[in-house]
Amino acid sequence: MVADGSHATGGMASRGRGRANAMQRFARRRSTIAFLMTLPLLSIIVGLVAYPAAYAIYLSTLNRRMTAFAGTLNFELLFESDTFWMVAFQSCFFAVTAVLLKASIGFWLAHMLHHIPDKGQRKWRGMLLVPWVIPPALSTLGWWWMFDPSYSSINWLLSVISVPEVPWLGHHWWARIAIIMVNVWIGAPFFMIMYLAALKSVPEQLYEAAMIDGASSFQRLRYVTLPMMANIISITVLFSLIVTFANYDIVRVLTNGGPRDLTHVFASYAFQVGILSGNIPRGAAVSLFMFPILALCAFFVLRSVTRRNKEQM
């Protein structure tokens, strides 16, 4: 009745209109619109990230048959297992070494590309991006074949220069190096393209000013290029650290954790324990270990990025 203005009394009609206006105002508020527009993304995050994460936490508190609550038993058992500590070490070693190598090689490649005249730059950029766009499972298969003990083309090349055969996937340290090599090969182009974009955004006049101020080419790199790129470098390193730390496919295809589980990282070990050995709660507990380590990294990196942004932009 109230909504029907023609039959309602004056006072009630205006109150009804007032409510409708308030609704309209609410719908028109920027924050409301912003919330509605981000709703699809929020639902994806809740469905694909928050729910599985919460479910993993729940799973990790169950017993092996998932019939009863087991508290922190899974974690306690993991802490007592040597294999788990080996996996933790291998994950950190793999992620840190691979990211450092990717960042350095990417930086070097970006510099090389930056100094190629624009005309020729495109084709080099395209070629150097190839490792990054091939599906990693496929390219890793290619590498696996190159590391194969009987047909290793890398060993053949080494034998040409009289270097003795290397047991690439047979010895655990060589296998770890092989995994890092493949990861670097796949991931360095990403760093290259990010750094190239960052290099292009450094104003040429800063270099000219530094040249006149007396800076050598190394000093220009140290005092102009690196500080100007610091934000991109830290964000790229953080992003890559997360992805590398959670890497699964390379280890799975190349070594499958072997020899003797010595090349497992968190993701492949969680899969091994949870799916292949059928201990889902323990597997969930393994995978949960990545989170606090990465959260800590992200916190420090993002804090320094924000601080720099405030000072410079």
Binding site: A209, V224, M228
Partner: peptide, 29 residues
């Protein structure tokens, strides 16, 4: 090279190093 010519230049868009303070900018050379 420019650094050995003993010259100083002021650019149109100033070309100050954004990550350095005013003191550091002036002291850099």
């Amino acid at each position: 090279p420019p650094r050995d010519r003993d010259i100083a230049m002021v650019f149109q868009n100033y070309a100050l190093y954004p990550h350095m303070s005013v003191y550091e900018n002036m002291a850099f050379g």
